[in-house]
Design a binder for these strands. Sequence first.
DNA 1: AATGAATGAGGGTTCATTCAT
DNA 2: GATGAATGAACCCTCATTCAT
Lengths: 195, 195, 195, 195
Amino acid sequence: MNGFERRKEQKKNSIRRVALELFKVYGFNKVSMNDIARKAGVSQVTIYNHFGSKEELVRDVIKTLCVDLLGKYRAIIKGEGPFLEKLETILLDKTKIVGQFQGELIQTAIQNDPEIQQFIEPMWQQEISQLTVDFLHEGKEAGCIDPGLSDEAILVYFEILRKGIQAGFNIPAKMERNPQLLRELMSLWVYGLNG
Amino acid sequence: MNGFERRKEQKKNSIRRVALELFKVYGFNKVSMNDIARKAGVSQVTIYNHFGSKEELVRDVIKTLCVDLLGKYRAIIKGEGPFLEKLETILLDKTKIVGQFQGELIQTAIQNDPEIQQFIEPMWQQEISQLTVDFLHEGKEAGCIDPGLSDEAILVYFEILRKGIQAGFNIPAKMERNPQLLRELMSLWVYGLNG
Amino acid sequence: MNGFERRKEQKKNSIRRVALELFKVYGFNKVSMNDIARKAGVSQVTIYNHFGSKEELVRDVIKTLCVDLLGKYRAIIKGEGPFLEKLETILLDKTKIVGQFQGELIQTAIQNDPEIQQFIEPMWQQEISQLTVDFLHEGKEAGCIDPGLSDEAILVYFEILRKGIQAGFNIPAKMERNPQLLRELMSLWVYGLNG
Amino acid sequence: MNGFERRKEQKKNSIRRVALELFKVYGFNKVSMNDIARKAGVSQVTIYNHFGSKEELVRDVIKTLCVDLLGKYRAIIKGEGPFLEKLETILLDKTKIVGQFQGELIQTAIQNDPEIQQFIEPMWQQEISQLTVDFLHEGKEAGCIDPGLSDEAILVYFEILRKGIQAGFNIPAKMERNPQLLRELMSLWVYGLNG
DNA sequence: AATGAATGAGGGTTCATTCAT
DNA sequence: GATGAATGAACCCTCATTCAT
């Protein structure tokens, strides 16, 4: 990539960054192209020249986000460390990336945009699914997960926990402020209400 | 309340109902006053005469929704039946009311509107909190909840589960179609990953 | 129609009139909704409330125009007077209505808008065709048209003449200024180049 | 002209060609500089460097077109063959060049742009007028045109026919598919409605 | 009390054109 | 001389809201 393209990509990234920032806080609909343009210090048309339309900009931002996310996810699972620590990191840390979306959650955008579904679905099914299954087996071998439980149930359980933490009122912050709470929640996940 | 006011209240309720219906499906922003007016069979101005502004209409709808919700919640908890059944009903059934909000979740509206916070917070803290604490004690007495766990941790855990189920891809439907899955999830909640 | 609707229809008509006037001079594309609104002394949105969109406004104007046109056409053909005089009136007078469209001719709008085609085609085929065929027979009976000529050929010939007069550089004006020219052209139509 | 200028002129011609092609199909207004640049494989700025502005490009294209047209016209009239055949060629064949303009007819551009009028008018009056007068005399000598008719009337008649054929619904195609129709129309032109 | 009519502000988008390299 | 990047102005359209009846 030569100097021209590099600078172009830099500018695109700067727009992406600004857009993501605003989308996170106000949601996709509430942020106007004008908002993004002003905050990025460019004209609206510049964004159109680079991304084509607002819809495509949203797509682009989401895709970028998902790729980043997948990378972090993989790094955690394939990394070193005990199973429970990884579990904690995943459930709490991903939050910092996706979870702050207010307004409409990223989910909405995905559900309503077939184009983006086609991009994400393969990634999800081939990569994330496999990663998660690997992770489950690691948990079972580590003795943290009852081998009698079906994979599907555990996956759904994880999804519920992840989404619930994201959607909740700043739950990660609460946990960080109160280590006791974190420990208890981990205990609830592993040993259940019944202890 | 005389006949005059009763008819007035009926019309308000009919507008409320229509608005809620549309909000649920399309989110607050995507629904225009015009949409509501047409579907309710009245003029836009009539809505303004009754509710003052869109913002206030949204507030009103949310308040109504919350009061309804609180009623159902109380009915379940104060009702008859074993603890685990109530737990299941709460986690799964409330979904059908709030969970269908697409676009922006109700959360957003609440977080961004101080007025509504002031209305909801007391209700939440005085009523719901008390109800839930009662519920926890019932669970502990029934031997389903480890008495060693703090109330706060359990409350947060419940919140996570509830939000996670709402936000997930039609998880209640999945559970209803697959009773095995439901049983396993209940088991996960009660006995944890470790079984 | 009560007073309400009458005033509404008056305002619609006033917008229609302004729009037609501008469309005639500048063509459909060059005239913006803002132009029309300003010249009609209303807000843009008022036009949208009445007509829905620019496309529909254009349609409406064209339809109105066509209905008017058909009326005049019928009046001429069904009216009294010698055949040749009617022929002259038709070829020259219709011009004053449609022919001044510059920019894009009405034709374009019709060709590119299926909706309007569906409105005009039946009218054209059922009414105008029949009228014109009647007119031809009148001409044949009056001895002005060679009975050996096929209807189709004459219809096409008329169409060519009409369109040619419309599209030409102010030909009607020329003819009116120079009665000699008018007489010669009529002679050309009736007796041909060969005299 | 050296090699440098020749290459420059080639590039200009390639742009001209592309522009004409697009203008013919979509009209002057609907074609953007971007469209032309992309289809010609150059940057927008290159067009500006060569032609100055869109207006001047349109002028240039029209001028080129007119010069080409005049050439063809002269070739036909000065060429060999019987008068009636030439007449047919002129009325039908020129169509293929100018007649496909949709959107706005070339006329519009000419009428609204004084600069182009100043270019075309002399050409028209000095060259085309003379050519056509010559053509008329040929027709009169060939016995196809009544010598009693004034030149002006015949010129206007030709203009009407030419424009009418251009503006009509694919009349040339109709004629080519139906030779009978062509013969009848020729008869109408030469012998009139009266036969 | 209820309505039809009207609107200012703002949305996304496109265009001909200029700037900097 | 040619280009990619950038832009101000304008376009069509929608919305929450108010005015007049």
